[in-house]
Design a protein around this nucleic acid. Structure first.
Lengths: 157, 157
DNA sequence: GTGTGAGTTGAAGTGGACTTCAACTCAAGG
DNA sequence: CCTTGAGTTGAAGTCCACTTCAACTCACAC
């Protein structure tokens, strides 16, 4: 019934390096039982956690946020399919947003390639939310990572 | 005709911090003239470079690769719209690939949420290239970042 | 029992992309 | 002229997600 996995087995089955698994454990993302000789033994359920972690990273979520999400799982019992579904659904909007952003970038890039502007001068890239037209003339860059500068303005050429 | 920008101006117009602009310069991504007093003065064309850098980062390209791309621009003359178009087009397939991956993740996640498996047990997440079915029974994770482990196998439950 | 490959630890190192700091110098308005 | 905000430098620091290392110990097939 237990059927525990060694760190090497979990690593092989998840595609995550043992060192990374130990790291995840230190961060409180996964847990392991120990043998008498202090070696880790993972319940099969941990495989799901590792899967969730890797998927979440793909969506662009930090390990810290992933930990928070995993903390919301019931401790008493093995998480149910519904528990996992709830967690997965919680990333859905971020995934949508990320896809939307990249698709837009692609479209804009196509447009820019067509006209050769690329400079973001006229294309929608300038106005991430399409709502900044009032703040002075000209272009504004998309801010990929958190940047807190709302005072950008003016044209490129 | 020159109409040069100070680092503060370039920062404001690009949304990139001055420290980052200096960093880009150290890496050879952008360049600046100097005043008699050793202050940077940027030609307007640098704004395009910064735009290209930020767009490229969005696509998931490292600064090192961006530098290589920028190095392919003509040094003698100000890059033409065609030059920029060529560079932008060079990221297009990476952008497509990234979008494809995320879209697929979304679809799979939807499926998993529906069935509650999330564990990647049966869904396509397991087989990134749809071609690994022969290598032993069971699941395989998508490998988001370079991982060189082709020996993963077995089921999740 | 012994050899070997797998596992253990804490500490330190890596790489990417910047930011912060201290100690200065410049540029421009009043 | 003088003040003040903007700019300069190199070195060091930060954050994230790990990896590497040395020095051991375990587990298990023979």
């Amino acid at each position: 019934m237990p059927d525990l996995l060694t760190i090497g087995e979990l690593s092989a089955r998840s595609g995550v390096a043992p060192s990374a698994l130990r790291y995840y454990e230190r961060l409180g993302l996964i847990r392991a039982d120990r043998t008498g000789g202090n070696q880790r033994r993972y319940a099969r359920a941990e495989l799901r956690r590792v899967a969730f972690i890797r998927i979440s990273q793909q969506v662009g979520v930090s390990l810290d946020e992933i930990r928070e999400a995993l903390d919301s799982l019931p401790e008493a019992r093995t998480p149910s399919p519904q528990d996992w579904a709830r967690l997965s659904a919680s990333w859905r909007s971020r995934l949508d947003e990320r896809i939307r952003l990249l698709s837009r970038l692609r479209d804009d890039l196509d447009g820019c390639i067509g006209c050769g502007c690329l400079s973001l001068q006229r294309c929608t890239l300038n106005n991430p939310e399409d709502t900044l037209a009032g703040e002075g003339p000209g272009a504004r860059l998309v801010l990929p990572r958190p940047t807190d500068d709302p005072t950008l303005a003016s044209s490129l050429n």
